[in-house]
């Protein structure tokens, strides 16, 4: 899954301060200009480090929160094959979260600090997961559209300037592509089925289409990415990525036999792209601002899991300490 707009501020992450040094900065910029990677032990401007911590952790949080809307359907999956596929998929999302947290940790922040940011509501995660999964078709549409949009966003990140993040993204992208194909396959099967199944797919597409294209974040005119572009973190603009996604998806919708819920969606010969209707940015900012249908429930679910599990984590620590003491005494 994915974190959306990169320009949404979190709280200020803590971590070791590093001396700003014009000479180092020149070397740093030169390496980025030459297309090289910055590694964990390399000098980097403080703002670069903080920007990356924010972006990688938002991405990790999105993977973790994203387990909830899909997890909502594991126990009700309509066949054993689909249940197994969904379980494996959600497990993959958790795995993405795990190694993205690990990538963030290379920047001098702990997973506990990042978790605290999520649980307190200070850190953001992708707003797409604040929409509810109402039917089984939502599981297919999340794979097709939401993972599809995520892949479009993430492929450029495989070449982002920070090495540990870029390498994590290569693996994430491979798995996400697989998820997208599985989601599309789920929908194809349903479209071959009964009228009720086809209606279920259309209803899910109607609900998820605009939220999916909102995942690319605000229009370029409303979005400031000067530094992230300069630093080779953001390679392609929000609107360009969104256009690419729309162009690719229209044909897939035709093959599937569903309509996309936008009367203004049509091919523009002169531009060589599809035009599409106005995005409801008020809805986008409302959901980002905590007023989506599931914001409160998602955060409550994460907090409950964390609080309910406190005794387990404490037990593991206590046992490890006892073991160490026993080893010392022996």
């Amino acid at each position: 899954m994915y974190t959306q707009s990169l320009s949404i501020p979190d709280g200020d992450p803590k971590g070791p301060r590093k001396v700003e040094n014009p000479e180092y900065e020149a070397e740093f910029n030169a390496r980025i200009d030459a297309g090289g990677f910055i590694e964990a032990k390399d000098w980097m401007p403080e703002k670069y480090r903080k920007t990356l911590i924010r972006q990688i952790s938002q991405h990790a949080h999105s993977e973790i929160v994203g387990m909830l809307p899909e997890g909502n359907w594991i126990t009700r999956a309509p066949s054993l094959k689909r249940k197994a596929i969904l379980l494996a998929k959600v497990q993959d999302e958790g795995g993405h979260g795990l190694y993205l947290y690990a990538a963030a940790e290379t920047l001098g922040v702990s997973r506990d600090e990042l978790t605290e940011g999520l649980l307190s509501g200070k850190a953001k995660y992708s707003s797409i997961f604040n929409y509810p999964t109402l039917t089984w078709a939502d599981i297919g549409v999340i794979g097709w559209l939401v993972d599809g949009a995520a892949i479009m966003n993430q492929i450029p990140l495989c070449k982002c300037s920070y090495g540990p993040y870029a390498r994590a993204m290569i693996r994430v992208c491979k798995e996400e592509s697989f998820h997208q194909r599985q989601g599309y396959d789920l929908l194809l099967q349903m479209m071959k089925g009964t009228p009720e199944q086809r209606e279920m797919v259309q209803d899910a597409v109607d609900r998820w289409w605009f939220p999916s294209i909102m995942m690319f974040g605000p229009h370029d005119s409303d979005s400031v990415h000067t530094e992230t572009t300069r630093w080779g973190i953001k390679r392609i603009s929000n609107d360009d990525l969104r256009q690419k996604f729309v162009d690719a998806t229209v044909k897939q919708a035709e093959v599937l036999g569903v309509s996309l819920p936008d009367p203004d969606l049509k091919w523009n010969e002169a531009r060589g792209h599809y035009d599409f209707g106005t995005i409801d940015w008020e809805e986008f900012w409302d959901v980002v601002g905590g007023h989506g249908q599931c914001n409160v429930d998602r955060l409550a679910a994460r907090n409950k899991a964390w609080d309910d599990g406190a005794w387990v984590r404490e037990a593991a620590m206590a046992h490890a300490e006892k073991q160490a003491a026993r080893a010392l005494a022996a």
């Binding site: 594991i74 249940k83 197994a84 959600v90 497990q91 899991a305 387990v312």
Partner: peptide, 28 residues
């Protein structure tokens, strides 16, 4: 599989999902 997203730590979330997946595979 009811544990999905609810385990005490992320590693256990993955482990429980993995065990659920093994068992569903066996049941098939």
């Amino acid at each position: 599989s009811e544990w999905c997203g609810r385990a005490p730590v992320l590693e256990e979330d993955l482990a429980l999902a993995n065990m659920a997946l093994d068992l569903i595979g066996q049941s098939r």
